[in-house]
Design a protein around this nucleic acid. Structure first.
Lengths: 237, 237
DNA sequence: GCGCAAGTAATCGTATACAATTTGACCGCC
DNA sequence: GGCGGTCAAATTGTATACGATTACTTGCGC
């Protein structure tokens, strides 16, 4: 749940308009890899699944297409996005470009209670890593992303926060497609090191660690054209 | 027209699906300040205006709300976004954070023909500045933004390009609301200086100029709560 | 005259219905 | 047997219709 992260400073409007709930549900499913890239998301099917009309299903899918999580092809349907290696590179290039800036901004505004909150997240994350089971894996994936999102939230810039939400979500897709090792966050807890550097007010070091962290994630990818880059829909299930 | 900018490397799908055409039309109107912040955009009115059903009008407005150009209020309607001073600060903070990175990326990949293209844009821009008339003013606003967008396009990162499109569009709204001097781009052609710095391969200087350029735009704003921040809809036309 | 309340008009939220396009299959023809 | 065309099924694109919520107005009571 990123509700923990959002609880910090997002202005939540409890009355969500149906379509948004569906959008969030599908997004969670994609980010947690319950939906594989390339999966067809028919408007009718989505509507039936959530017991709403095609109108709402369509709206939700359109919304997800704006975030780059699903690609809608004219008169053909919506599919869970299947990022190309080039797109993957762009996603991580964008993160390398953005995250140091967010980190600096966040470090300048961070309070002791927020640091505690971050440490809490890290604890939860490491607990999930040690745990077994698919649900734990999914929770871990989400927790790993929540660290970066929380940092963005602390930075106080809602726009950058939204950009990061998109980038983190799409990163999850890329890792699902091209990741090699079982899990994204490698052995050492690089997140913890970053927090420590922030706490020590060593921003340059923190940024350095962040860049390395992103590089490590990217290094775990095998970014080669999958067999059937163009005919990916062949087995879209 | 940013078609000139897009012509560089965006993959355009000529068959746009109705709603997108409307979205683009409204976005252009907002960016060119033919629509004032706070203006009500009723779904029915938009639909009638473009001779389409409310369905498409609604889709277009939803899309624009994702870009932050219109704000839809539940059961009340859609309005041209009325960015608060705080939002305005966040928009420019985001630009300061992002644009240097884009600049570096673009400078690393730029070709001589692209430099020529940029110079062409600058020429067109300065021509518009010297010209009189409202249409020239609107074209100038667009041209000023197109410089930044073209730079993003040259960077080769479609994601960052999209982020910049949103930021530039929203900047236009902010300037419309809080701008003091007649036009955003101040006296000296800072854009030209940036291109020169790029051409000279002096990236640090180019970034420096870019940051100053953004600062200059921001310095021209009077970011104080407008009278009636809350009752802005009182005279929404 | 002012404040409050109920009714009414307008607008959005959602569902359903119809039209257009694509896909896959079947059948005849070469 | 392979190839091309035509037809049917499925899916999306768009429009219309109905229900719900909000804002406005009108009228009554004070």
């Amino acid at each position: 749940m990123n509700s923990a992260a959002n609880a910090l400073l997002t202005t939540d409007e409890p009355a969500e308009t149906g379509a948004q709930q569906i959008r969030d549900a599908i997004r969670d499913a994609i980010v947690e890899r319950r939906l594989s890239p390339g999966t067809k998301l028919s408007e009718s099917d989505v509507g039936n699944l959530f017991n709403v009309s095609r109108t709402l299903a369509r709206a939700a899918l359109q919304a997800l297409s704006y975030e780059g999580l699903v690609s809608v092809e004219k008169n053909r349907g919506a599919f869970v996005a299947y990022p190309s290696p080039d797109e993957a590179k762009q996603i991580f290039a964008a993160r390398r470009l953005i995250e140091p800036g967010i980190l600096r901004e966040a470090a300048a505004r961070i309070t002791t209670s927020e640091i505690q909150h971050l440490r809490q997240l890290l604890l939860e994350e490491s607990r999930l890593i040690s745990e077994r089971g698919q649900t734990a894996r999914r929770a871990e994936i989400k927790a790993s992303g929540d660290f970066h999102l929380t940092l963005a939230a602390i930075s106080g810039n809602a726009i950058m926060q939204r950009f990061m939400e998109e980038l983190v979500a799409r990163s999850s897709l890329v890792i699902a497609l091209y990741g090699q090792s079982t899990i994204s966050s490698c052995g050492h807890n690089e997140h913890g090191d970053i927090v420590s550097a922030i706490e020590a007010k060593d921003l340059d070091h923190a940024c350095h660690l962040m860049l390395h962290h992103i590089a490590h994630i990217e290094a775990d990818l095998d970014l080669r054209e999958r067999k059937g880059q163009g005919l990916k829909e062949a087995f879209d299930l």
